[in-house]
Simulated assay, not measured.
Amino acid sequence: MKQIPLPIAPPPADRFDTVQVGANAAAVQHLRGLGLDGVAAAPVYLWGDTGSGKTRLLRAMATERQDHGERVGWFDAADPLPWTFDEAWSLVVVDRCEALDAARQQAAFALFIDAGTHGVQWLAAGRQPPVDLPLRDDLRTRLGWGHVFALQPLGEAETRSALRREADRRGIFLSDDVMDYLLTRFTRNLGHLMNLLDRLDEFALSEHRSVTVPLLKKMLAEDSGEGAR
């Protein structure tokens, strides 16, 4: 029987000072400047493929507002209805816009109108540019009305840096061999790699072993090789 490890390091909140910027400096700079004068700016839409960091930037923006005592409305395409607007919010976030069904498109459109009426900042993200989103015309047009940023995935050096920093936070020694194994056998999707690191941390604790390539291979074998190329 294996020991069930207790969490030692809680997951960190995504913040701008911990986000790997890479080629997305313009988007990050724009987001960090939103609301500095206390006035909602034009809507912002972020798009990019899986692993480009869209959700992390949305969370960083939400965390910054909450750190200043503000309230944020957060909606994902999978969240249950109804989606109700709150005038106390300073920011409304809608993630995974490409997956909005008809009912949630209606709800998102209503949120957009309410946010504009009450001067609340709007921030959304999806895998496609607004013009290509499979959405109703009025919502698609509004998502593309303000500032639109195409996000690029991190390069190898930036991915390594992000993994190394998270490993250090957890107190894990991540050797170059382990890092190379991860980056050569899995897609360079930072979210997926972070999930692998999380599972590897737990597996190492349960096995009472250091993180090594053989341990990683054992975990993947027990996990049916999920996600390996």
Results as ranks from 00 to 15, higher is better:
91 L>D: 08
39 V>I: 10
74 W>M: 09
88 A>R: 14
108 A>H: 11
61 M>G: 04
60 A>N: 06
120 V>D: 03
96 R>Q: 14
125 A>Q: 05
47 W>Q: 12
102 A>T: 07
138 D>S: 05
50 T>C: 10
44 V>D: 05
72 V>N: 11
123 L>Y: 10
99 A>V: 13
42 A>Y: 01
118 H>Y: 04
43 P>S: 07
135 L>K: 08
113 I>W: 00
83 W>G: 00
45 Y>W: 10
136 R>L: 10
120 V>A: 00
140 R>H: 06
79 D>H: 11
117 T>S: 03
133 L>R: 12
138 D>F: 07
40 A>H: 02
80 P>Y: 05
41 A>S: 14
138 D>A: 02
124 A>T: 15
95 D>I: 06
53 G>W: 07
136 R>M: 13
39 V>K: 06
52 S>Q: 06
124 A>R: 14
59 R>S: 09
115 A>K: 05
57 L>Y: 08
93 V>F: 04
60 A>R: 02
122 W>L: 15
94 V>F: 04
138 D>T: 05
46 L>H: 04
49 D>W: 00
137 D>Q: 14
94 V>M: 11
129 P>D: 11
86 D>W: 01
88 A>K: 06
65 R>W: 10
112 F>W: 15
48 G>K: 13
66 Q>T: 15
49 D>E: 13
69 G>L: 01
64 E>K: 11
50 T>G: 14
107 A>Y: 03
64 E>R: 15
99 A>P: 01
109 F>C: 10
140 R>D: 01
131 V>D: 13
66 Q>K: 13
103 A>P: 01
123 L>K: 10
76 D>P: 00
61 M>T: 15
39 V>M: 06
115 A>W: 03
52 S>N: 04
102 A>G: 03
61 M>L: 15
72 V>I: 04
64 E>D: 12
95 D>G: 12
64 E>C: 03
132 D>E: 14
66 Q>H: 00
116 G>I: 09
55 T>E: 12
65 R>Y: 12
45 Y>C: 09
130 P>C: 09
72 V>S: 08
58 L>T: 03
110 A>I: 01
130 P>K: 08
97 C>P: 13
52 S>V: 07
125 A>H: 08
45 Y>T: 09
83 W>D: 05
91 L>H: 07
46 L>M: 09
58 L>S: 12
47 W>N: 14
120 V>S: 02
